[in-house]
Structure formats: structure tokens, C-alpha cells
Design a protein around this nucleic acid. Structure first.
Lengths: 384, 384
DNA sequence: GTGAAAGCGCTAACAT
DNA sequence: ATGTTAGCGCTTTCAC
């Protein structure tokens, strides 16, 4: 269970840091992996005057070693700049690592589909190192479903967890348990305020709202901005787009202090009601040019309405590369999409965990904000 | 030398395709890599009634096997869905693979620096599989320097080559030689019309020009577009941006048939002359608003001029994320940059070659066009 | 607490 | 042309 063990020398890079002078480490790191003269576990054993078995025991911190031997071995390891050969390790090991990925379930063409693709990409990588991946889905509108997912994951005793959190409190409880068990976890999409995660991969939400507002207004004399929002039937959910909306609103009030912001709530499941709301919006806004934005991935709802009503006097900005959004973009009902590679986020999360488990190396950066991609009809076909 | 050998079963996926029924392959592919019951070389040997040694010989096509045995072994391999365990393979093998990367040399902050970073990323990956990387630079304005680079690479007998071609004819000669030697090669940045490459990673150049024009004009009533170009002292070079310029010009003539396109050539090495040219441009164009574009990565030349002359009545679009370009973007002297992840291109090229050498798997797609990223002051800080 | 030894699946040198 | 065998560096019993 190295990699999780606090005292495992690989799990605790500081130990190596303490012993190995930097100039040696740089050199060692370069060639230890494969070139010629590597230091092997045998060399260490000899130099420390013990057997491989004992070295292996301290390497993986599985006890049954005298303090004296341990100290000696650690010292020799540092002096020689020994690094384990993970081919040999994997070959010889019967271990079966498992990484569980907890994400919302989805229908075809929805946002989380891309994340799942990323999980598959990550699986390909982790698979090479003998690590298997188990996706565990939950209903993002159902707290109990999330709890069940967490319980299931805990029961499977994973070596690492990737999680896209939607329920704040429950997630905090869950990751606390992971921490207690020394199971590393990585946030994707959004993160919480705890500090125990190995890494985070997601979009800078506030900035994405700010950027969105800039693209929406685009220097035009905008007097009113319509934010279309999803009417959520359930409460208690952390709204994943508040921060984005804040960025949007901040930009508007900074650059267009007189501009009015109007919220319209639509029902994703009731087309008639949705159209009613949008009709109302168009009836009440006298301005011939409308500026419309959606802060989530469902801008295709607006596009469908505009297509049906044959309205082309809007500037519409949305988020994410759903197929429906792309076709709205191509047809000119949406002027721009702000996209993110949520597949890469998921893949990066798995890669980070894999490297942590196999190489005992944490990611270079803990918080990784992915780039915000601006898509229009001319570059969207080369996306992904 | 498997992976290069034409008859090596891994080098020739069709052989496997022929023998293994699809439904078996799917199942096998899933678990062969690591889960429990793998088929080993021993199983194959037993089933074929020969020894491991013989199986290994046909696996790597190193001859000295009777046609009969070979046939039998191939059949058994297919039936059993045997796939080699590459940990064991690497562990036991003394082979030293080398991938050479031929790219233009550069100064700090120039375009190719990012490519070099990508090579380092790729190296990290390939390094794990015991493959070393050697970058070989050439002067992109000096044919002989390129020839020397090619000769050097050939002399080092690489197992694979990554190349960013600038000299068409010489490159064609070079890759012909590689093909003859069965050395796989991958193009990055741009590619040639030969067909022997394993993969290509680069930007869709024509489309990038088209996109650029769209961003430049942005719905404004544009009457003249200034293309700033680099005065090249040497001839015989294939201009890497012609195609991009064509895309740009096509867009303009399609959307702004009356718009005039004016070329201005500037000298990258002579600031005074450069400023003279630009002064002239500004003197001769009566329009207070100017539309300026550069099709290469040097738009910072224009930005510097505008900064010095304190001119803010231009819409300027350029390419690529040099530090100088980014600061021009932040300061508002450039309105947008069209960027590409040339680091990822290089890394992907190395990954593709690595997988080809180790796993004997070609890339999913041969031609890989990377996305075109639109950068403005609000999203550029999250790029890379 | 520690050491010895038997593999993991493959490669390659050496016999035959 | 084919079989045998000694490793590659590490993990994991099983003795002591």
C-alpha cells in the first residue's frame, strides 16, 4: 500500500529531498529511468549490508524492520540516488490498483459525456500501468443518489478517486473519509474549499463569466443583457454557475454601468412554457437587437427557439461544445461558445493519480485552470 | 528491430486482423494488458508445440524459423489473442530506441521555443518506455544547415524521426531515405505531399487565415486591410504562411469584395527601416481606423511600433503566443491572437512514435489538425 | 527482524 | 532451424 502510506519514502518526497543533493538528483533523475548504469535494489542492499527483502520492506514501509536498518537503508538510497524501476515493479507485483471516478450521469449529447470520454482516455494511460478505472455515476439532482455513489466507492476500496462535486456538504464528508484512509483524490470541474486534494482540473469560473460578457457586448452600445437561466426544481444544490454569473455581471457593471441585466428562468422539460417565457422576453424588450447569454451548457434551448421563430436579431453567447450548441453556432443562432476541454480535465486527473500511485510523484501544480476556448463558426470544426 | 520490420507481426496489424475474429479481439484487447489471466509467450509456445525462443523469433521477425513453424505460431497467436507484455519486454531488452526531432533553431521567446517545450513533454513520456529523444536544430534560412541536420540524424540511426520541414525538396529526399530504412517519421507544424509519414500534427493553415480575417473585420465596414510581411532575404524557402494568407484573402474577397489588400514588407533586423515603412503606411492611408494583420508570429513588431508612436486607432490581429505578443495583447495594441498548441503537436508526435515503437500501434488518425485558439486579453492568461 | 529463493514475461546468447 | 537457459529488477512467500 505504498503511495498511500505516510511513511513510505516515495509517498513523502521530503525524505528524498532531505538526503539527496540537488545536483545529484537532477543528474540521477535524467538517467535513472532507463539509461545504462542504474542503481538497483541489489546495489542498495549490498551497500547497506542487508538483503533485497529488507530494502523492499522499507521501500514500501511495511514494517518489520529495525530502526537501525531502516535508517541505514534510507541513507544509502539517498546517497546512491536509487530510484525503483517500475517495469520490474509492475511485472513482479500482483497488486491491482483501482481509481474510481464519480461524475454525474447524463444523456447522449449532454455536458458530462465529454468528461466520460476523458475518463476513457485516462483509462488508456492508467491501463498501461496496470491500474483499472471504475466510473461511478450519480443523479446530480438527487442527494441520495450521490450518497449511494460515495458509499459504493468507499466499499470498493479504491487506491485513488476522481470526483466532480455537486453536493458540497456530502462531498466534504466523503473526502474527509478518503483522507483518513490515505486515499488520494482529485477534483474535476469544480472544487471545494478543503485542502486535502491531490490536484484540481477545471475552468476558472469567474473569469469565464467575465470573458463571456466581453464577447457578448463586443464594443456594442448594449443597454440590456438577458441572462437565461434554468429553473431548478430542487434546492440545496450548489449552483455550479453562480461564480460565472458573478464574473459576467461584474464586467457589465464595470464597462456598461447603465446596462440592465434581466434574468429569465426557463424550464428544461417543458417546451411550451419555455417558449412562452421567451416570447414574453421578446415582447417586453423594445430594443430590436437583443443580447442573450446562458451561463451553462444549455444555450441550445435558446437557439432552438430562435430557429423556430426565425429570429436573427440577437447576439447569443453560451458555453460548452455540445453537438446541439455546435450546430446552433454553425447556423448562426449562437455567435460564440466558450468551451473547455473537460475531457482533458478528466484525463489529466487520472494521469495525475496514476503517476502518484506508480511513480509516487504528485502533479507539478495542484490547481490547474484549463484554458477558455472561444469558438465561432470558423474554428469550431477543428475543436476536439 | 521489430516495429520497423515489414514482416514483424506487430508492424503489420493486418496479420493480426486476418487471424483474430473481431469479437475475440475486443475482449482480449480489454484485459490482455493487465488483468488476471493473460496469454503469455509460454502459452503460445506450448500450443504451437515449439519453444519460447522460436516464438520470440517470429514475434520479432528475425528469421531462422521454418515456414511451417512460423505459420503455426502465427495462427496460435491469433487464436489465443496473445499480446506481448511490454513491461517484461522492456525489462529484458537491452535495446536503446532513439527518436530524433528536427526543428529550426531559435532565440528565447521565439515561436519554436514552444515546440521545444513540447519535445520535453514528449520526452517524459517516451522516457518511461526507455526511449531517448535527441533534438537536432537547423537554421531555417540556411539550406546547408538543414542538410547537415538530416545527415547527422541519419548517421545516428534513429528508430523514429519527428520533423518540422522548411525545405521541401531536401525534406522529400530525407524522408525517402527514412522510408527505405523503414524508419517511421512524423511531421509537425507543416507537412509535405509525400505519403509515407506515420502522422502529422499541425494547424489547418488555410482555415486559420480565414478565421483571422473574420476576427479582423469583425463586422466592421472595412475598406482596406494591411498585411504586414517579413522581407525574406533568402529565396528558395517554402514560405510557411502562404496558405494562411490565401485563406485570409479569400475571406476578404468573399465578404468584402471592395476591400483593398495592401502588403507591406518589413525588415525584422532593421528597426529604423521598419518604422520608416510603417510611417509610410500610416501616412498613405487616409482612413483613421486601420486594419492590420500579420500571418506569422511576429506581430509584436507592429505592436512595438504602435506603442512607440502611441497609436491606438488600429485593429491588429496576429498569430501565436510569444511572450511579446501576449504583452501586446494585454496592453491593447493587439486585439486578438490566433494561437496553437505547438507544444502539444510536438509531444503528440513523440507519443505517436513511442506507441508505434513499443506497442506497435499506429495513431488513430494520420492527419491531426490542432484547434485554433482565439486569444484576447481576457482569456490569454489561462493559456498554456 | 531478516534472508533466501522462486517467480513475473520476455530477450538473447548459447547449445544442439 | 530449434531448444535451453540465464538473466532484467522487483515482489512475495516462506523459512529461520
Amino acid at each position: 500500500m505504498c503511495g498511500n502510506g505516510k511513511n513510505c519514502i516515495f509517498g513523502n518526497p521530503k525524505i528524498i529531498d532531505t538526503f539527496v543533493p540537488l545536483y545529484i538528483r537532477a543528474a540521477v533523475a535524467r538517467f535513472i529511468m532507463h539509461e545504462g548504469n542504474k542503481v538497483t535494489i541489489n546495489d542498495v542492499a549490498k551497500a547497506a549490508g542487508v538483503s533485497k527483502g529488507t530494502v523492499d520492506r522499507v521501500l514500501h514501509d511495511r514494517g518489520e524492520v529495525s530502526a537501525k536498518s531502516k535508517e541505514k537503508i534510507l541513507k544509502v538510497i539517498a546517497e546512491l540516488g536509487y530510484r525503483p524501476n517500475f517495469y520490474a515493479s509492475i511485472l513482479a507485483s500482483k497488486k491491482n490498483y483501482l481509481i474510481s471516478c464519480i461524475i454525474p450521469e447524463f444523456n447522449d449529447g449532454e455536458f458530462w459525456e465529454l468528461t466520460e470520454k476523458g475518463i476513457d482516455q485516462g483509462k488508456e494511460y492508467s491501463g498501461r500501468f496496470g491500474i483499472s478505472i471504475e466510473p461511478v455515476m450519480y443523479d446530480q439532482y438527487d442527494l441520495e443518489s450521490f450518497q449511494r455513489a460515495c458509499a459504493k466507492v468507499l466499499a470498493s476500496e479504491p487506491s485513488g478517486v476522481v470526483i466532480a462535486p455537486m453536493f458540497r456538504n456530502e462531498t466534504l464528508k466523503f473526502v474527509k473519509e478518503l483522507s483518513d484512509r490515505n486515499v488520494p483524490y482529485v477534483y474535476i470541474d469544480s472544487k471545494l474549499e478543503d485542502d486535502g486534494y491531490l490536484a484540481y482540473y477545471g475552468m476558472p469560473m469567474y473569469q469565464s463569466g467575465y470573458l463571456c460578457a466581453d464577447i457578448l457586448t463586443d464594443g456594442h452600445p448594449v443597454r440590456k443583457v438577458h441572462i437565461i437561466r434554468i429553473a431548478r426544481d430542487k434546492r440545496g444544490l450548489s449552483d455550479p454557475t453562480v461564480t460565472r454569473r458573478t464574473g459576467l455581471i461584474d464586467y457589465i457593471s464595470e464597462h456598461y454601468p447603465d446596462c440592465v441585466i434581466e434574468n429569465t428562468f426557463i424550464d428544461p422539460k417543458d417546451k411550451a412554457a419555455r417558449y412562452g417565457k421567451l416570447d414574453e422576453l421578446f415582447r417586453n424588450d423594445p430594443d430590436p437587437w437583443k443580447y442573450i447569454v446562458m451561463c451553462n451548457s444549455r444555450v441550445h434551448f435558446v437557439a432552438d427557439y430562435l430557429r423556430d421563430r426565425n429570429i436573427r436579431t440577437c447576439r447569443v453567447i453560451g458555453f460548452d461544445v455540445l453537438e446541439k450548441n455546435l450546430s446552433a453556432l454553425r447556423d448562426g443562432y449562437v455567435q460564440a461558445l466558450i468551451a473547455q476541454h473537460s475531457d482533458r480535465q478528466a484525463a489529466a486527473a487520472i494521469t495525475a493519480l496514476t503517476d502518484y500511485l506508480i511513480l509516487h510523484e504528485g502533479p507539478a501544480k495542484k490547481d490547474n485552470y484549463t484554458q477558455m476556448d472561444i469558438l465561432n463558426r470558423y474554428n469550431c470544426d477543428y475543436y476536439i
